[in-house]
Write a protein that binds this DNA or RNA. Structure first.
Lengths: 258, 258
DNA sequence: ATGTCTTTGTGAACGCGTGCACAAAGATGG
DNA sequence: CCATCTTTGTGCACGCGTTCACAAAGACAT
């Protein structure tokens, strides 16, 4: 019934649009900076500039949370920081596990941005027995075998996957089975999860590819404009490209023709 | 299909929606996997499932690139891989510099996903003199002083910023001045750049906060709709726990109402 | 050839997000 | 207390992206 497609109950709980939720952390950061400088109030214009968004958009975003501003004055910084923090759930403690302590996982464990906002790295987990017990960022790495127990003992509901792509789905399944309902995925794979589990993915390679697309378009604009067929060619005019590039790495882009 | 027509003059490569561009790398990854398994063709349904998207969306996305499918059969995997690669600009070499070789920068330098798709780490740059010459991922770290020269000598147009927040804008300015026109920013700051420069940001902390929001909502659904409640409060943040230098934006944890 | 079956490509409707523009609300000064 | 000024909060319109649904296109069998 209800032919396919995962049902999406999400996002419309309190009526806060997903796009707004995604911007709240941005506002919060800007507000925190103001708070540290003991700035008492800000206008939507100022705050919007600091957050890099449109002021009308910001006001509309805040209107979803309630009327926390004062007309003619602006927003009380401290109060707004509190309201947004509460809305995002940052007034409570969120134990997090990081699975896959390679280069990236270790970097994440050391990343200050996590700990600084209510997120606590409860455990580091890796499949390599040689890693077990070894401290990373002051936390001893534990073996994957104990994953379920770790999740349960710490009441973890948020998991970070930083494993190789091949292991990601399996790890994901175990996390979910153990009770994790939110996953931040750094592995370059599409994870499939049951309803009720949120997945956000961060894919470094994809971001670069998107940049490359725009970069190519920019480079192509200078050369020619209207050719009917394949634009191809794409002579990237930038210097130091045609001459000495062959030596250093001998690594060619991995693509093949038809 | 080589025989002339069948071509829509309508929206050429100039008119590819941003949302579509953002999905092309996803398709490409799925197609590459199929290619490695020597699968000759795929239907939009199959490919969409592998990429985790709707099949109608996928077909529409591909329609912006041209008519590369065969009705009744599907898409030729190899051909499509080539077309998407070309569209994304991955058939050429993209030298990239990474600035800020801390935990994250080092992880990025080691990240296989970069090199595997036409991106070549041309240089690693850090402001710490002690890092200079030290090899990371087989590449010797160079000092920030030489940034401009490095950009120029290597014809770099894409830069990755993995510095602390405080240094990001300054590094950004120098990159742009030196000729970089695309920036991937990992620092938790809003970068301001002149027109013509693309910036994409990856913010680990923001992703977690978004997850926390949904997580809180899920948890709140079961119990009463009670708001606030400030659980256990007592944010531990004051312990100055930030790991040395990587401090993202160093902000205080909690807050209080007015 | 002809008919059937599969799958693409796309017109059209719909919903979400964005930005404009302005009235309402409150501060401030006389 | 009233006038003026500032800034919020929001109704409205517009454009983009998503999804549906179906005709057209081609493969394949007879």
């Amino acid at each position: 019934m209800a032919t396919g497609r995962t049902h999406r109950p999400a996002t419309r709980s309190r009526g806060i649009p997903e796009a707004t939720v995604a911007r709240l952390p941005l506002y919060l950061r800007a507000l925190t900076a103001l708070s540290e400088r003991s700035v008492p109030t800000v206008s939507s214009e100022e705050l919007a500039a600091a957050a890099g968004v449109n002021s009308a958009k910001l006001r509309k975003d805040f209107s979803y949370l309630g009327s926390y501003g004062t007309r003619g004055v602006g927003y009380d910084v401290e109060y707004l920081v509190y309201q947004i923090s509460r809305e995002l759930g940052l007034t409570q403690d969120w134990p997090v596990v990081i699975v896959g302590i390679g280069n990236l996982g270790a970097a994440l464990a050391n990343y200050g941005g996590f700990a600084s906002r209510g997120f606590r790295v409860a455990a580091l987990i890796d499949a390599d027995p040689a890693m077990a017990g070894k401290p990373v960022a002051g936390i001893p790495v534990q073996h994957t075998d104990d994953l379920e127990k770790i999740i349960e003992d710490n009441g973890v509901s948020i998991g970070v996957i930083a494993t190789p792509a091949g292991a990601a789905q399996q790890v994901c399944d175990r996390l979910v089975a153990a009770g994790v309902t939110s996953i931040l995925n750094f592995a370059p794979t599409v994870l499939s999860v049951p309803d009720g589990v949120d997945v956000r993915k961060v894919d470094l390679s994809i971001e670069l590819q998107i940049l490359a697309f725009h970069e190519q378009r920019k480079a192509g604009e200078e050369t020619a404009a209207g050719d009917g067929a394949l634009p191809a060619a794409a002579p990237r005019g930038t210097a130091a490209d045609d001459s000495a590039d062959q030596g250093p790495d001998g690594d060619v882009p991995a693509v093949m023709p038809a």
